[in-house]
Each structure stands twice: as structure tokens, then as C-alpha cells.
Design a protein around this nucleic acid. Sequence first.
DNA 1: TGTTGTGAAGGCGTTCACAGCC
DNA 2: GGCTGTGAACGCCTTCACAACA
Lengths: 212, 212
Amino acid sequence: MTSGDAPEEGRIPDSTVRRISGYLRILEDLTAAGARTVSSYELARRAGATPAQVRKDLSLFGQFGKRGTGYHIGQLHDEVKKILGLNRHWRVCLVGAGNLAHALFAYREFAREGFQIEAIFDNDPEKIGQDWNGLSVLSVARMVDQVRRRDLEIGLITTPAAAAQEVADSLVRAGVKGILNFAPRKLFVPEGTRLRNVNLAIELESLSFFLK
Amino acid sequence: MTSGDAPEEGRIPDSTVRRISGYLRILEDLTAAGARTVSSYELARRAGATPAQVRKDLSLFGQFGKRGTGYHIGQLHDEVKKILGLNRHWRVCLVGAGNLAHALFAYREFAREGFQIEAIFDNDPEKIGQDWNGLSVLSVARMVDQVRRRDLEIGLITTPAAAAQEVADSLVRAGVKGILNFAPRKLFVPEGTRLRNVNLAIELESLSFFLK
DNA sequence: TGTTGTGAAGGCGTTCACAGCC
DNA sequence: GGCTGTGAACGCCTTCACAACA
């Protein structure tokens, strides 16, 4: 192996990735506040984690700190963006043009981290042709073709549960690399496509479990 | 201990609770399809889990199956609803009357599982007084009083990140039992209040990590 | 035979604790 | 002295495998 390679990312726990995504937001807050360096203790305090956890998480990707000093915020920020694959833009489409899609479309955080929503699809004639801030809602019939042609990489599914698996199949066929599913059913995709399920009902129900 | 007590719930993993919430939806699908019994194998297949996992999850709460036959769907459905604390209604309020709040307000799944949104708060004069399907958006200034008076139990926070912690503090002061936070910052609440953070940016960013 | 319930084994992420360096 | 990086210990969730039972 040649020296100068990026550190090998062995097996990275999902929980580590999620925490690191949280650190990113904290680093942005710290930057805005004018800080230059931050210790694993401070980062942990703000993230609701432990210092050892923070150091272990980061150490899985390289050595970014200085003993005695901590981490340089600007540098760590750039490293974290690279780690998460946010040092580029992602071409995203929305499937299902309902209320949730509208919220995602308007979500500042997405645009700020480089996720560009470039197409919106629905099958409701009432919605097809709607103008969303300059973007025209298209028929799902055109989805596969459009996703291929524009090389869209990520699909956000916000359709009703009954339609979600079929939409996912089409997105996979059209060649998206990843899917974020908000429909309240677990979806399945072939090996090679990444899928993440966000189920709002589960969040609220698991809250109610701990309250009862 | 008297016999006839509900089985003691020792330490239940969060992951178990979330999976059980997923089983609930599957049981509802099966009921709609007219099935009477289901095995741990079938339940696992649909949930994307393993049969042993399903059996272990359920066994933490009692013995609901019949050897050789599987689980009676109707009965298991009722048990699961009880386990999750869904055999009752929950009084919920929304804080922040933006796009995401609108999506949550319209989300069928919540109403179907007994979460009743009984108040909406915002601090934007443009939004205060808006009619949301018969519910009037109120000023956050009235939040603590209203939450107390109406004995609201769960708060859904959809404000901008900068305001979220302050809103959470007020909700705790007003006596809510649980908070579901959608603002992209980790919040902190005192022991005794349950908090769950849903961070959409993290979901999309951790997807991008695995795609890069 | 079919399928559950569960103790035991295994695997994996978290925490500890300290060597190493600034 | 302060703080990072990390191997080792720990603990917890998952998986295994089989006894029990319809």
C-alpha cells in the first residue's frame, strides 16, 4: 500500500456515522461562534455523548486532533464533510408531492449540505404540472426516464404506504444509488442500492411506550 | 407477587420497541388481508428481521404464541397495542406551524394510532390565528398555560433549531411527559421527561456516507 | 411435524484506562 | 498539565440451538 492513502474505513457502525453527522452541526455552530479549537469533552457535552465516544468515532477515520490542544474546528469540519460524502452535490428527486414532500422540499438543512432536489413526481392529475418554486411536478410515468436522463442519485419516497415498494422498485430500475423512505412500511431493495427507512409512526409509538 | 399480574418488563432494548412498532403495522396488513394466524417466520420476512428476533422481542412481554401454530393475529395485535401504550388516546400539541408541522398534522398514521393533535403554537403573527382544519394556531406565549390547562401529554417540536431548546424547556415546565423533536439539534430534558430526536439531516447524511 | 420460548453462545459497539505526545 | 488515540475489558443485543408442546 502506498503511503498517503486515505485511512481504510473498515467496518463503521451505523451509530458512529449518525453521531458524526451530529458533530457536523455542532462544528458549524462553533464556527459561527468564532471558536478555533474544540476538545472531545466539549464536543461530547454538546452532542450528548462521552469524550471517549467522540474520540473513538473520529479515530475510525483518521487522526484529526492534537494532544494537549484538541481538534482544530475548521479542519475537522472539512474532514467530517468529506467523511460523510458532503464535499460534493447530490442530485435528489422527490416521489409523492404531498405535505411531507413539501416540508422536505423547503427544508433548509438539505440544501445547505448539498442535496439538490431536481425533480418531483406524483400520480395525481391535480398535482402534476404544479409549480414548486420553479420546478414542475411530473407524472410518475415519466419517472424512470427522467431519473436516468438526469442521472438522479437519491430518491425520497413520501407516497402512501401501498405505493412505496413499487416506487422503490422503479427507482432502483432507473439506477438511483440510495433511497430514503418515509412511507410507514419497511421497503426492500436489492444489494447494491442503499435504503434507509424513516418511520414517523415508529418514533411516536416508541415514545408512547416509554410514557405509558 | 399476585398471579395474574402483567409480565414484568425488565430492561427492554429500544431496538425491540421499534421493531414491535413495525410488527404492529404488519399485523394490521395481515388482518386486512383476512389472515388468522402468523408464524415468527412470516412476521420476520415481512419485517426484515429473523424469526428468532421476532420471538425474542415478543417473549420479553409475555407468551403470545401457540407451538405448532404461530400467533393469533387479532390477539397479538391487541397485545402489541397494549405494549406500546396505544390502547388509549394521547393528547398532543405541535410547536412551530411550518411545513413540517403541516405534514405531521395531516399524517393519517398518527390519528389512526390514537395521537390527537389538540393545539398548535407558533410565534409568527402571520400564523397565529390561522385555522387548521378547525384548530386555531395560538401564540407560543400562551403555550405553558394551555398545555397545563388541557393536560397535553406530548409535544412535537418543529421550530427552527435556534428556538428548539427553549421550547423544550417550556414544554417540560408545562408538564408534558414526552417530546418528539424534529429540529436539527440535539435537545436535553431533565430526567423524568422522555425525549426522542428525529433529525432528517442525519438520515440523509448517513445515507450519503454509504453512497460515497 | 411445525413452531414457540428461552438459556447459552456469540458478536459488536461502548467504555475504560493509560501510553503517547503537545 | 492537558488532551488525544487506542487496545482491552465490558456489557448488551442478537443469534443459535434445542427442549417443550400443540
